[in-house]
Design a protein around this nucleic acid. Structure first.
Lengths: 244, 244
DNA sequence: AAGTGGTCTAGACCACTCT
DNA sequence: GAGTGGTCTAGACCACTTG
C-alpha cells in the first residue's frame, strides 16, 4: 500500500518548489546515495499525489541546481561529487602540451585550526584540522603549490597511511576513503607574490608574481569540507568568463 | 485573418526548439526592437498552430539564452543591451567605498585595423576601425586604463563631436548613438606588467603587475562589435567563480 | 519488450500588472 | 476588469536504454 507523502507548500511557494525541497532533504538525508538512481517520475508523482508534469518540474529544478542528473531512457541519478582536475582550468602550462598532471604531498599535519581556517570551515576555534601541502607538476615541471585544510573528525582516515599512494585527484579520493562527496565549490581569484619558501618549491624567484585561487568546497548538505589555497605563476594564469 | 506560420523541425529537433529558432530569427531581423514586448503567448501559439505549453517552452528557452526577459503580468520583452558597469566587477578599489566611477576619453583615432584586431572583429584586414583610449577613475584616483576598438562603418557617429560629453557608460551610449545593442560578452583574464606609458596614466611604477581583461562584445546577431583591453592594478584584482 | 525520461496537447485556474 | 505570464492537471505518444 503506497503511503501518500503529501507536501505542504507555504503560501507563495509553488507546489513543484515544495516538492523539490522535499526531495532535496531526502537526498541529503542519504535515502539515495550519490551515484544511485532515484525512483521513476511516475512512481514519485504517485507517491506525492501530484500530476506527472508537476513532479517533472521539481526534478528539473534539482537538475538545474546540480543535485541530480537526468538521463533519457536510463533514469535520474544523484550526482557524484565533482570529478577533480578543475584547478588547472585557471592555468595554461605551455610546451608540455596535454601531459597528465601529477601531484605529490609535501607535508601532512594535524593542527588546531587557526582562527581564519576555523571560520571558513565553520568549526569551533581551536578544533583539530588536517593541513596538507601539495605540489602539482605538469610534464615534470612544478606548476601549482597548494595548502589544503580539512576538518578533522571527518577526514580522520587520511591521517594515516602513506600519502605517496593517494593518486592525483583528491575529490574521488575523499569520497572513497572518507565518504565525503564534494558537490559544489567557490573559487576566489586574486594576485600576490611568492614567499621565499613557496618560490623554491615552484622553482621561481622569491617575490615572483603569482595568481592565488582560494577555494571553499561544499558537500551535499552544504557543509564546507575543504579550504584550499593554490598558487601558480601569474604568467601562466588565464581564465575566460561569459557575460550575459 | 491570422496566417498560420508553420515551422518545420528537422528530424531530431524538438518542435519547441524549432519554434525558438524561428522566434530568434524574427528578433534578430528586428521585427521587435530591443526593449519592446513581443506578442502574448496565446497569440504566438495560435499563430504557429501549436499548444500553449509548447510555445511557452520555446520562449523559456529564449529567456535562458538571455534573448528575452519574461515578466509576470506584464509580458515578454526583447532584452536591452548589457547595462554597463560590468568591468569593475573584476576589481576592488578600496577606501573610495562605493563612489561612482567616472571615465575620460584620452584619445580617439580612426585607423586601418591591425591584423589581430581585424581578426577579432571579423572585418577585412586593413578596414577602418575606431580606436579609443579611456581612463576610468574611482574616487578621483586613476583605476582602469582601456583600449577599445570599434568597427567603423557601424560606429561612424562616434568619430565626431566632443567625447567629453559621452558619459560614463559606453554600452547604453552605443545603443543611443549607433543603434548597437551589446547583448553578450566574453572576458579573458590574464596577468602582465605595465608599460611605461600605461603606468604613467595609472600613476603606478613602470613594470608594476597588472591584471588584463580582454573583452569581445557581441550584438544580437552574434557579430563582434567591440574589442576591449582593460588594465588595472593586479593588487586590486579579485574575482569569484562558482563551480558545479 | 519493458521501463525510463522527453515532447506535446488542451484545458482550467491562479497571480501579477496596468488602467 | 482585462490582459499577461505562471502553475497544475491528465493523458497520449515518442525516443532512448537495457535486459
Amino acid at each position: 500500500m503506497p503511503s501518500l507523502r503529501l507536501v505542504e507548500s507555504e503560501p507563495g511557494q509553488s507546489r513543484y518548489g515544495a516538492l523539490a525541497a522535499a526531495m532535496r532533504s531526502r537526498i541529503i538525508a542519504g535515502e539515495w546515495p550519490p551515484g544511485s538512481a532515484i525512483p521513476a517520475e511516475q512512481a514519485l508523482a504517485a507517491e506525492h499525489g501530484v500530476a506527472l508534469g508537476t513532479m517533472r518540474r521539481a526534478l528539473d529544478l534539482l537538475a538545474e541546481q546540480g543535485l541530480v542528473e537526468r538521463s533519457h531512457g536510463r533514469g535520474t541519478f544523484v550526482r557524484q561529487g565533482l570529478s577533480g582536475a578543475t584547478m588547472l582550468r585557471f592555468f595554461r602550462f605551455g610546451a608540455a602540451g596535454e601531459q597528465a598532471p601529477q601531484s605529490r604531498i609535501l607535508a601532512r599535519e594535524a593542527l588546531a585550526a587557526p582562527a581564519e581556517v576555523a571560520r571558513v570551515l565553520a568549526i569551533g576555534p581551536g578544533e583539530q584540522a588536517l593541513r596538507l601541502k601539495r605540489l602539482r607538476t605538469v610534464g615534470g615541471q612544478p606548476a601549482l603549490l597548494e595548502e589544503i585544510w580539512l576538518p578533522l573528525p571527518l577526514f580522520a582516515p587520511l591521517t594515516g597511511g602513506d600519502p605517496a599512494g593517494w593518486g592525483d585527484l583528491l575529490y574521488p579520493f575523499y569520497a572513497e576513503r572518507c565518504g565525503v562527496h564534494v558537490q559544489r565549490a567557490v573559487d576566489t581569484i586574486g594576485f600576490g607574490r611568492l614567499g621565499a619558501v613557496q618560490a623554491r618549491a615552484l622553482r621561481l624567484a622569491a617575490g615572483h608574481p603569482c595568481a592565488r585561487v582560494q577555494r571553499q568546497a561544499f558537500d551535499l548538505a552544504g557543509r564546507c569540507v575543504e579550504w584550499r589555497t593554490t598558487l601558480g605563476d601569474a604568467n601562466a594564469f588565464h581564465y575566460t568568463v561569459a557575460i550575459t
